[in-house]
Design a protein around this nucleic acid. Structure first.
Lengths: 257, 257
DNA sequence: TTCTATTGTAACAATTTGTTACAATAATAA
DNA sequence: TTATTATTGTAACAAATTGTTACAATAGAA
């Protein structure tokens, strides 16, 4: 019972128009039907934001996403996509959920985007087909990122979590689920996250404001300080003279594990 | 710039030999390159086991897996696969990780399995290609399941977690990650899991043994009872006369949320 | 020098968890 | 009937953790 399975990519234009990695604008070279969407959390001075793309002439906003090359690990694809969008490479990145309902398949917005970009996609264009998408969340200091739009979008920028524009498809759901994951994992993953979210050294007040911003609630200063110190992962470095008319706080660093 | 993307399934035999759902043994009707693997945890009387398939004449063991139909939700596919393997439908099931490294692509074992089953797969047979696999864990009372082998395997049975046979590919890693997830989530998900892991009513000792088995550590009886009662989700039902020469324990039920 | 805002930490209370102890049984055997 | 036994439910207390308040120690500005 010899059976053959072949995935074919047809392009009416030039099959040879491909980037060096052998993945091209016709979708060839990518794993078919599988995508990534990333909720990139940016933190800086009490502010928690996420990175969104705005598509040209459409008023449509979306999470940065991407595809997986045939000769690429899934997580590596997420890391590559992230670097393309932010210019950052050593940041925390983790899967949190796979969005695989049929209901999320809605070719209309993507068709609008393509048309707004001067393309005339056929009904069966690969970008208009059903995708199962792996959700990733990433953590960065947003002052370190250099957001770059992708080929179809004219802006890539940070948006306050509580003032998000209307998002495409199920991207609002994806953001919500990412935020839940962030909150659930905060205590357990703090040390892993620290280098992505905080400068090398930081004051206790900065660490507390990170907690408060992520959890969206006020914490008691004294108890917080005691709890953090009791974790045994903080090393006190120096005093920090901020210029304020008050005692100078210490700066801390997470000790290597 | 009209571009076409078409996925083609070639079968040297009969393209019409398909199940009613339009997914066939040639892989057509399924989302290409995407699979599921399930770690089905079975609990009963202090024992935690998982369900494994043994492939005919190969000595190879594997997690039950499956594919996603083109007109099926991802989670629905997992639920269907689970029902096919266990006969159970109302059980707890959740994604925990996507395994998407290229390194996991190793066609050798699957080729052996197919050959052992009298098939002569070509090099490009769909089952021998790279798959990204969504890992699910499920929770059942293993006395309620009726394990059924799939087409290529001659047994489907429960194995003690600490006495697993050698598993195919990266399935050992998948089991490990599922177990970690189970432990991390136990407290937070207890109520959701209860109906899959415990009988409708249960004694405190049974609940404690569930905890101890999952966490693989002894807990203090008194503190455990107090903690569980303080959750405010247990309803005391009745006494249970077990026949033992001692005080009869109460049986509890989780109250509806 | 005084004043102000913020920090680090002590002090104590409240709560939660760890541990031990013991009375309350269901059977069983004397 | 009456011990005996194994387990259960919970009280009692200790230990640890967390919540809250208080206060001394500044770094700068007035």
């Amino acid at each position: 019972m010899p059976i053959f399975y072949v995935t074919c990519w047809y392009s009416s234009k030039n099959m040879s128009d491909q980037s060096p990695d052998a993945s091209g604008p016709d979708g060839s070279g990518y794993l078919p039907g599988l995508a990534l969407d990333a909720v990139i959390f940016g933190f800086h001075e009490n502010q928690l934001r996420i990175l969104l793309l705005e598509y040209r002439n459409t008023g449509l906003f979306a999470l940065p996403g991407g595809f997986i090359r045939e000769n690429e690990d899934l997580n590596a694809a997420a890391r590559r996509m992230l670097a393309e969008r932010t210019g950052l490479s050593d940041i925390y990145l983790e899967q949190f959920y796979v969005f695989g309902d049929q209901a999320r398949h809605d070719p209309a917005p993507m068709r609008s985007i393509m048309i707004a970009n001067g393309l005339a996609p056929t009904e069966y264009h690969w970008l208009l087909r059903r995708f199962v998408s792996v959700g990733y969340y990433a953590l960065v200091d947003f002052t370190k990122a250099v957001p770059r739009p992708d080929a179809l979008s004219d802006s890539c920028d940070w948006y306050d979590l509580d003032r998000l524009p209307q998002l495409m498809q199920d991207h609002q759901t994806i953001v919500q689920k990412a935020l839940e994951t962030l909150r659930i994992n905060l205590d357990r993953k703090l040390v892993e996250w620290a280098s992505s979210l905080l400068p090398d050294t930081f004051t206790m007040a900065e660490l507390q404001s990170l907690y408060e911003t992520i959890l969206n609630e006020k914490l008691h200063r004294s108890g917080f300080q005691r709890k953090m110190l009791s974790l045994g992962v903080l090393e006190r470095i120096d005093k920090k003279y901020t210029g304020g008319a008050h005692k100078a706080p210490y700066v801390y660093r997470f000790v290597a594990v």
